[in-house]
Design a protein around this nucleic acid. Structure first.
Lengths: 206, 206
DNA sequence: GTCTATAGAGTGATAGAC
DNA sequence: GTCTATCACTCTATAGAC
């Protein structure tokens, strides 16, 4: 490998380190609470280098938001009409919970962005998540028409699944204060899947 | 009324105005994003007066957090063993949703505090919410033993209700980006109540 | 108690040597 | 590209007149 390529690789490594550090810092303290100096320290680079590579704090923030959404989009492409409702729903719940447990800080980062009014992810919400939601709502409606699930409100169901899964990252500090033992992914997955399947009238048809 | 009493009343009015303004500002921008100057402007008082009455930014923040929790505690004292499960659960969901719709900014304020790691409400969580949760979990267990509801995980159910209701304040900006019409309290209440009752196996026993 | 003016600390961003 | 030193600005908090 040439010297030029090695140098290029090194820069990419540094940038990746900065992105990871930034996700942590922004995810722990929010946009305003995050300190550029703290991100640089976490990544082990001088603050000036960070700003050299990413321009400014806000550009870095946009960068890590998009990096996070890109990771999630590749994983959540599920729930189609021809699937078995029970399999599809429990699979979706399990997958979502797995992502939440694997990336709690990124989950909280996303939550903070939405709490701020989602100013930096309007494009993602309208161009990607909105079509995704419309299609899944349509699938659920089809399942209701075919009598495969009970006549519930599909959109409220999906919001319920989103909220209930993300809760285990967003409210982890509350959960830790309320319970003695940390929640286990397997237990939550089983309990929540049961609730969701009950909710659409699929109980007992294992 | 004496001149002294009038003056005292005026001060209380000013303090109340500041608290309302602070809930708005902190709820919209978070602790670090909130500006003392902006709170003073909203309340219509000079910044120095605000700091004279409340000491500093952090004391003001603690004050409004407690004011918010006090309001909620008086409303959420429900769900007892001898209630009818169906009535109790649907009543609780409806009440929680009503609070969320009435006080969306305060709901987001609370969410941000928890996302920060809940440093300022440990007392509330451990001394008030924890006992409340333990008692309700016990009630739900009793109902399960008596065969009144399906054998679900009570804690996961309560977290689901919390998350699903609060979602309509916390994720309002996402919901607005995803849907054309703003969600109506009545519709959400009916749809979510249906899901929750299904989840515990009370469907169709109206 | 109320207000203006300002101090003091911390932050994002940059200049310029290497 | 990397780094040190520093600027310019913002924000909290206070001093002191009224």
């Amino acid at each position: 490998m040439s010297s030029v390529a090695l140098r290029k690789q090194h820069i990419e490594k540094v940038k990746a380190d900065i992105i990871e550090a930034a996700i942590e810092e922004f995810g722990e303290h929010g946009y305003y609470g995050a300190r550029v100096q703290a991100i640089a320290d976490r990544a082990g680079v001088p603050k000036a280098n960070l700003l050299y590579h990413f321009g400014d704090k806000h550009s870095l923030y946009l960068n890590i938001l998009q990096a996070t959404l890109r990771r999630w989009n590749s994983a959540l492409d599920t729930l189609s009409e021809h699937d078995d409702p029970k399999k599809a729903l429990s699979g979706y719940v399990a997958l979502k919970l797995q992502l939440v447990f694997e990336q709690p800080v990124a989950t909280r980062l996303f939550a903070m962005e939405v709490l701020r009014g989602a100013p930096s992810i309007q494009g993602y919400l309208k161009m990607e998540l909105k079509p995704w939601l419309r299609e899944r709502v349509a699938v659920l409606h089809r399942w209701i028409e075919l009598g495969k699930i009970q006549p519930i409100d599909p959109q409220v169901l999906i919001f319920m699944i989103w909220a209930s899964t993300q809760h285990y990252a967003e409210y982890v500090s509350q959960i830790e204060a309320l319970t003695e033992t940390s929640p286990e992914l397997d237990e939550i997955t089983e309990a929540l899947t049961c609730l969701v399947l009950n909710a659409v009238g699929l109980y007992g048809t294992k």
